[in-house]
Amino acid sequence: MSKILIIADHDGVALNGAIAKAVACAASIDGAQIEIAVFAESTAAIAAEAAALDSVTRVIAIENIANKHLIAAVVAPQVVAISDGYSHIFGLSSSFGKDLMPRVAALLGVNQISDIMTVESPHVFKRPIYAGNAVLTVEAPTDQVVIATVRTASYRAAGANNSAPIEVVDIAADLPSHTRFVELQAGSSDRPDLQSASSVVSGGRALASTENFDLIYALADKLGAAVGATRAAVDAGYIANEFQIGQTGKIIAPDLYIAIGISGAIQHLTGIKDAGTIVAINKDAEAPIFEVADIGLVGDLFSIVPELTDALA
C-alpha cells in the first residue's frame, strides 16, 4: 500500500489552493493513504483547510516560530524527522516545493522526480522535459521513498467535503539559523489569481509599454480573467515578474487563454499546454503561436483588442 505525505504550501494564513491538486495526484495512486503536513507558526486555520480535502486521512501540524516564513533549509530537516513510514512524499511544483523537495531528497539520500504529470503506477510517472518538447516516463526504485513534486496544472482539484483528524506534533530537529527571511514583496492584485483563473489574457513584447498593457487589463476585466505575460514583456518592465508564464514562469491550465502580441516561443508555450482553448491575436500570420491556437486572428492588436473589449460590453 502507498502511504503518501504531502507537504502543505501556504502563505502563513491560508492553504495554497493547488494542494487540492496534489491530493488529486496522490489519490490517483491505487490504494493511497494520504496525509498532509503543515509547517507553520500557527497551523490551525491552514490545517483545517487541509483536513477538509477529500481522501486525506490525517493532517499533521508542526507549529514552530521558525516556520513563520517557509524556508527550505529550515523545513527540510523537519520533513526528514517525520518521514518514516511513508512510501511517497510530495510537494508542489511551486517556488516553495521546488526549493524544498530536492533538499529533503538529498538528506534522505534519494533522487527526486520533478513535475509529475501522470501517475502510471505507484512507482512509474510521466513528466515533461525539454520545456515540454518531450514527455519522459520514469520508474523509481521500489525499495526507497519516492520524493516528487506535482505539476499541478495536470490535475483538477480534489473536493473539500472531508474532516480528517488533525494532530499537532512536536519535532525535535536541529534547525539551522544560517538562512534568514528578510522580506516578501508580493504584488497586490485584486484580479483573479493567474494559477487558478478559468480565463487568462496575456500580453507580449508587442504591447511595447507599461501604459499599453492597460489594453490587456481592460479586456481581462471584461472577461473576469487573470493577466499574464511573456518573459519579453516582463524583462522590458511592462509588468511584474510574477505574471510570467512559461518554462521559467508559471505553468497554467485555464479554460481560455488569449495570447496577444505573443510570438509563441517554445519556452512560453510550455506554460499553456494544458489550456482548454487558446486564442491568438498577432499581426504576423507566420507566428508559431498560430500552430497551437484553437482560434487565430491575424491583425494589429492596437485596433483588435479595443474592438474586442467593446464588443464584450
Binding site: 502563505d11 524556508i71 511551486s94 517556488s95 516553495f96 544560517h178 538562512t179 534568514r180 527571511f181 528578510v182 522580506e183 516578501l184 514583496q185 508580493a186 504584488g187 494559477q195 511584474a240 515578474n241 510574477e242 508559471k250
Partner: peptide, 11 residues
Amino acid sequence: EVDVGLETIEV
C-alpha cells in the same frame, strides 16, 4: 523570484 513576487533572504 517566487510565485507571488520577490522574496529577500539572507544567507
